[in-house]
């Protein structure tokens, strides 16, 4: 017999332990480095603001080319027709270019929010949107701390637009179009671990050029896109108040209570029902 008594007790113990530890579950998945997610390192000191990345991104994904001008201090945003934008921020260290697109979180809020698995964290690292599954509820947009997914409000067959790190290219061994096109070498594609090492090396070698922080190393549980900047990150359009733990963690506690409620509440209700039923019967008896 494949399921003998010993196995049975083992299963019971594991199940019991699972119920008992409950919330501390999330802590098990600490060893991020074990998963070799791929990502991109953006270095603002190398960016020329030429917007070549914007152009190749539009071509690669069949989107219209952005017509608006890049002006210092004017913040442009990604949209349903533009997956990636370059902005010129006026900071305490002068003008600084920063690229904006999906951050490809290690534990993406959008994918945890998606009830059809349309938003999906691939094992390679990119977070992709799959139209055949999506029902257009836009819960991913509510959940994303970076406000990345964009929705086509003026279409009868609307899509969610966001950077997919050129997943189709990555699968065939190529690197993302923007990283390939960048003339200033501001975009480096690689595994997340390598990129963090490279970023640390750059900060160590020229500490004067960078703020001593890699944006994306810790924020929101770590992201696939990593940023080096010459100016403090809150001056170049990043929300530095975001939490460092992952966003799906926020609703995990609630989701863990669901099975317990489902198991415990019905018997309790049934018990009360039986108890009150007996009382009524005895009342009736007395009346008779």
């Amino acid at each position: 017999m494949s399921f003998d008594r010993r196995n049975f007790f083992k299963t019971i113990c594991v199940a019991g332990a699972t119920l008992a530890v409950g919330n501390s579950f999330g802590a098990v998945k600490q060893d991020e480095n074990a998963i070799e997610f791929q990502g991109v390192l953006y270095d603002s000191t190398r960016c020329l603001g030429c917007r070549a990345c914007e152009r190749v991104c539009a071509t690669a994904h069949g989107l219209p080319e952005a017509k608006d001008e890049l002006k210092a201090g004017v913040i442009r945003n990604t949209s349903e027709s533009q997956r990636s934008v370059i902005n010129n921020h006026i900071t305490s260290k002068g003008e600084v270019y920063v690229k904006k697109q999906c951050m490809h979180c290690n534990e993406p809020a959008c994918a945890a929010a998606c009830l059809t698995q349309a938003m999906h964290k691939t094992k390679e690292g990119p977070v992709v949107w799959r139209g055949d599954k999506c029902m257009g509820c836009r819960y991913c947009m509510i959940s994303c701390p970076f406000d990345v997914p964009k929705f086509e409000y003026h279409s009868a067959n609307p899509k969610i637009e966001k950077c997919d790190m050129c997943y189709d290219r990555i699968k065939t061994g190529k690197i993302p179009a923007c990283a390939e096109a960048c003339p200033g070498d501001a975009l480096t594609f690689g595994t997340r671990r390598e990129l963090i090492q490279e970023a640390r090396k750059r900060i160590f070698e020229s500490p004067k050029d960078y703020v001593n922080q890699i944006y994306g190393e810790e924020v929101a549980g770590g992201t696939g896109w990593l940023y080096l900047s010459s100016a403090p990150f809150n001056e170049v359009g990043f929300n530095t108040k975001l939490q460092n733990s992952s966003y799906p963690e926020l609703s995990k506690g609630f989701l863990y209570t669901v099975p317990s409620v489902f198991v415990l509440l019905p018997p309790l209700l049934l018990g009360i029902h039986e108890a009150t039923k007996n009382r009524n019967h005895s009342n009736e008896d007395e009346n008779e």
Binding site: T116, Q117, M135, C137, Y139
Partner: peptide
């Protein structure tokens, strides 16, 4: 009324049948 708000309502059946269970989602629940 949720159906009116869905951008792609023809996929509303996905979380109910098929293999597209987003079990980590509160909305799925």
């Amino acid at each position: 009324a949720l159906l009116l708000d869905l951008g792609r309502p023809w996929n509303v059946i996905n979380p109910i049948i098929g293999n597209n269970f987003g079990t980590s989602s509160v909305l799925f629940l």
